[in-house]
């Protein structure tokens, strides 16, 4: 199985995001960057699938040379090689999907795994755009029944199941009010939800090995993609702060407030 996985560079989800006073963007100073957590889950799932079925995990990222850090991280986890689309200007989800479409056409993977969303833009669009552009099936919000404490998880069993004829995958999707199972003919696009797996740490030998794994450089021009964004972010602002509340001493005081002041019980 050849699996293409995305690895977007995003702000560390634990970092404090502040909007610049002029609303033109966020304050970059002091921020740390990581691989998008949902993409990291995708890398893990890809590694589990090739451990079981043989094959190769190719990781792709789009951005300036700094995204090589995220590619190296995925390579250190165990991905085999990387594709870097060198692009420093603005790009929206349509542009990202168009670039990925070209990378897919070049690489011809059996499966593309992406995070369901990146934790900066929170758009949740690229996987679906890509599947539509390619005319492939999609299974978004991939999850599993077993918990993170289960034997399956401890043994790194892939949650995406290859069918007996190896022509399709079964994916359990996290949807409203339950779990839906779909079967997608390969090649297909899968996007990951939080509880698909717990990504592994990169081992020291893994980190050493990653240094010599190949990263191929491409550009939007080389891929013949116009990435002029169709989404303009006009202004950013901080959400309105909630006014400071009070501490109540005991339960009767709490109920009194809820009944007489907030009038909610």
């Amino acid at each position: 199985m050849k699996i293409l996985v995305t690895a977007k560079r995003v702000e560390d989800p634990e970092s404090k995001i502040k909007v610049k006073p002029d609303g033109s963007g966020i304050v970059q100073e002091g921020l740390k960057y990581k691989i998008n957590p949902f993409d990291e889950i995708g890398v893990e799932e890809g590694l589990r699938l090739v451990a079981k079925h043989q094959g190769e995990v190719v990781v792709v990222s789009i951005g300036g040379k700094e995204v090589q850090e995220q590619l190296r991280h995925a390579l250190a986890m165990g991905a085999h090689r990387a594709v870097w689309v060198n692009h420093t200007g603005p790009v929206d989800q349509l542009g990202i999907a168009a670039l990925l479409q070209k990378v897919v056409e070049k690489e011809q993977p059996d499966l593309v795994i992406l995070g369901k969303q990146s934790i900066d833009d929170d758009q949740n669009q690229v996987g679906q755009y890509l599947a539509e552009f390619l005319g492939w099936g999609q299974a978004t919000f991939a999850s599993k029944v077993e918990s993170m404490e289960s034997e399956q998880e401890k043994n790194k069993v892939p949650a995406i199941v290859l069918t007996a004829d190896k022509k399709s995958v079964q994916v359990i999707r996290e949807v409203d009010n339950g779990l839906a199972t779909v079967e997608c003919q390969l090649p297909a696009v899968v996007t990951t939800d939080l509880r698909l797996n717990q990504p592994r740490y990169a081992s020291l030998p893994g980190i050493m090995k990653a240094k010599s794994k190949p990263i191929e450089e491409l550009t939007p021009a080389k891929l013949s993609v116009d990435v002029t964004p169709a989404i303009q972010v006009l202004k950013m602002s901080s959400p309105p702060a909630r006014k400071a509340g009070i501490k109540v001493a005991d339960v009767p005081a709490l109920v009194e407030k809820l009944h007489n002041e907030a009038k909610v019980v």
């Binding site: 702000e11 989800p13 900066d120 929170d122 959400p239």
Partner: peptide, 20 residues
């Protein structure tokens, strides 16, 4: 017409314009 939507887990509200 522009739309306000959350980014960075709701830590930022962005006003966006779609041009397609």
């Amino acid at each position: 017409i522009t739309f306000t939507r959350p980014m960075w887990a709701g830590n930022v509200f962005a006003d966006v314009k779609l041009t397609t």
